[in-house]
Amino acid sequence: MAKNQYAVFGLGSFGAKLAVELGKAGNTVVIVDIDRQRVDDLREKVTEAIIADVSNEEVVRELNVAKFDAVILGMSSHFEDQVLALTLLKQEGARKVLAKANTAIQERILYRLGADEVIQPEQDVAERISRRLSMANITDLFEFKGSAFAEVSVPARMAGKSLRQLDLRNRCNVTVLLMHKPGCPTETILSPDTLLEKGDQLTVFGSRESILKLFKEN
């Protein structure tokens, strides 16, 4: 399988961590930062490491950014440079640009300038923790292209019933993908006659509203 190609511009804590994780996952990763030490610290963990100023038009042109599946901008602490880099990336035909923002105002500006996705790591983490603490049976929920994946616990009212009896896919448009019983390995759901027990962990897919309705309460 062909590797995806990514470029990470800006090696603060977010950009550096993301670059390393993308590399671990087997992707081709090019990192670029004006700080020599930051680049040298990651040189052995990525495909290519470049010391350069990505707010410079000539630099961005020479990087041939259109070849990357995505370019990640992690320069939110230098927002003016981030704005310039985003403008140049779009000008040079970058296919997809993800940008880190520190504030809602930065997020709005980046979207207006053409960013395909804007990430606020602290905000995203806070929202996930809030959901987890506020919803008794939902330990995590990720929205994805209008739908959601969630890790949920089986509530008491579903215990002792089979997936066939519950018929979640047809009644609620929620599909159970994986099941984990305490003390056992995670397994793919193979039989609709599998009985659920209170506290079983499920990975489900469906609309956010349907998942919340099904699993928010005991």
Rank of each mutant, 00 (worst) to 15 (best):
L141K: 02
V54E: 06
S13L: 11
L195K: 13
G74E: 09
E58T: 14
S191Y: 15
A16D: 00
I51A: 06
L18S: 05
K100L: 05
Q5D: 13
N64V: 13
L11W: 01
R128G: 07
K216E: 04
N137H: 11
N170Y: 02
Q91P: 05
A66W: 15
A104E: 12
T28L: 08
P121Q: 07
G12C: 07
G12R: 06
T139C: 15
V54F: 07
R38K: 08
G114M: 03
R112D: 12
L73R: 07
N170F: 04
E92W: 03
L178W: 05
D33C: 07
V174F: 13
E209V: 13
V176G: 04
V174Y: 10
E21A: 11
V60G: 10
D81R: 11
K145M: 08
Y111P: 03
S13T: 08
F14L: 08
N137P: 11
A148E: 06
Q82K: 14
Q82L: 11
P192K: 14
G23L: 05
V154Y: 04
M135I: 03
R108E: 06
R128A: 14
N102E: 11
K96E: 13
R171G: 08
L195R: 14
I34T: 00
R38C: 04
A7V: 04
L202I: 03
V152S: 09
E209A: 15
L202Y: 02
G206R: 05
T203M: 15
L98E: 11
E143L: 12
L86M: 09
A156S: 13
A66D: 15
Q123N: 10
E57Y: 09
A148D: 06
D35S: 09
V65Y: 08
L212G: 09
R61K: 14
V46P: 05
V83G: 01
L214F: 00
K17A: 10
L98P: 02
D69M: 01
Q91K: 15
Q123F: 14
A7K: 02
G114L: 12
R36T: 14
Q123G: 08
L18Q: 00
D41A: 14
R38I: 02
A104T: 14
A126C: 09
D193G: 05
Q106C: 12
A52K: 01
F215L: 02
P182L: 08
E117H: 06
L22Q: 01
R112C: 12
A104I: 14
E57W: 07
Y6P: 02
K45H: 13
S76C: 05
T103L: 15
T103P: 07
V29K: 07
E80R: 10
A101T: 03
L110G: 05
L89N: 04
V8Q: 08
L202T: 01
L73I: 15
L113H: 01
N170R: 10
R208A: 15
G26R: 11
F149A: 05
D35I: 05
V60F: 03
K45Y: 14
Q106D: 09
E80I: 15
E80D: 14
E48L: 13
T203G: 15
L168R: 01
V59I: 10
F205T: 00
V176I: 06
A19V: 01
G10Q: 10
N170T: 09
Q37F: 09
A159W: 07
K213E: 12
R108Y: 02
A16G: 11
R132L: 10
R61C: 08
E187D: 09
A52I: 08
I105S: 11
D167E: 07
K198M: 04
I51S: 06
A115I: 03
G199R: 09
F142Y: 10
